[in-house]
Design a binder for these strands. Structure first.
Lengths: 200, 200
DNA sequence: GATGAAGCGGAGGGAACCTCCGTTTTTTGT
DNA sequence: ACAAAAAACGGAGGTTCCCTCCGCTTCATC
């Protein structure tokens, strides 16, 4: 009942962190390839850890799904920063949005599974939507300031547009089509016509 | 290779039909209560048939999901005809839309599972959307002809509205809220204000 | 009724889930 | 550098569910 004093929290163990990361990597790979209901033991094997370790880090299947998802969102956000440093505003924007299409693509196979398990996705959705919008803004602003794009389209519009483009489609070969439509859209967004946006 | 002549198709057995129906009924109950990943043996038990029988009728879990879903869509359509005979246009419409809300409610728990399993849902979605729209039209037309509702709202709008109402919400107590919103919406649709829509 | 096709049931082999605990690794204190 | 203890590891194995297979029963037909 007396509140516990400072019990000197330990530094987290290095192998624990490493293993956690490995499992996430493996899970992403396995789920992407084998569908969302792939065996967890397969994930553990791929990660080179015991099944017990997997369960300690992610007590339920759903927890694992969620962690994978969050990690990918984060990586996508980091990609934006990287692209912004490497390319001009327009090209960075284009490349990032392409990556976003692919992200959504893999999620259509797996994210549905996420939605199923628990009903925690509301918070998750909000989280990723916010995160993505931040990133979009980060990429969009420089382009706007350089006078390269229309200024009446906000990052929220842009995000919705991409999601919309992806969710309208469904057949095979769909991804290509979505990417094509994305290019059209970005051309429309751009203010300078005529010069090929091509390589760097 | 020679095309087969008329091989005298047999009349389907009575017990087979009966059992099939029983399984569907049981599946609906079990899935609604215990979630979409409830054991299939539980379904068989509830239906009072052997597990083998279940698997003969529905070779995969997903096939069972789909059949349950289709059946419910069909029942909901029949309900419309019945309500149209029993109540006035406005009341029939209201009652049916309430049933639709509840339908969507159960589907949020189970339909997601449906989406997961195979990627057949595009066709399923189209099917039910079409079916529902037919029914909506059937209920809406009399109300419109009797001058009870605005005529600038079509059955497609109405359907989308309900789905929208349901999908915006998520917390507990959500269903009540959706029903309340539905009432508001229907009041807005109606041309005669002031009289309580209450009992029959 | 007789007959045989169609359907029924449930035992059982296999796969996946997840817990539990003896062993190993890492951190911390000296 | 070393020892002690906390934390994490691995995987055997109990449990649960999946789904096939086949001998028995029931129904439609003749």
């Amino acid at each position: 009942m007396t509140d516990e004093a400072a019990p000197r929290p330990r530094k987290p163990r290095a192998d624990a962190i490493r293993n956690r990361e490995r499992v996430l990597e493996a899970a992403k790979s396995v789920f992407t390839q084998g569908g969302a209901e792939a065996g967890l033991e397969a994930v553990a094997r791929e990660a080179g850890v015991g099944i017990g370790t997997l369960y300690r880090h992610f007590p339920t299947r759903e927890a694992l799904y969620e962690a994978v998802y969050r990690r990918e969102v984060e990586q996508l956000a980091e990609l934006a920063a990287q692209l912004a440093g490497e390319y001009g505003p327009m090209e960075a924007l284009r490349r990032w949005m392409r990556a976003l299409v692919q992200f959504v693509a893999t999620k259509k196979g797996m994210g549905t599974a996420l939605a199923l398990a628990a009903h925690k996705p509301p918070e998750l959705m909000a989280y990723s939507a916010t995160r993505f919008q931040e990133v979009m803004g980060m990429l969009l602003r420089p382009a706007a300031e350089a006078g390269l794009v229309r200024t009446d389209i906000g990052s929220d519009d842009l995000l919705k547009a991409v999601i919309g483009l992806c969710y309208l489609q469904d057949g095979p070969g769909w991804q290509e089509q979505a990417l094509r439509l994305l290019d059209v859209f970005l051309d429309g967004l751009s203010l300078r016509r005529g010069d090929p946006p091509g390589t760097a």
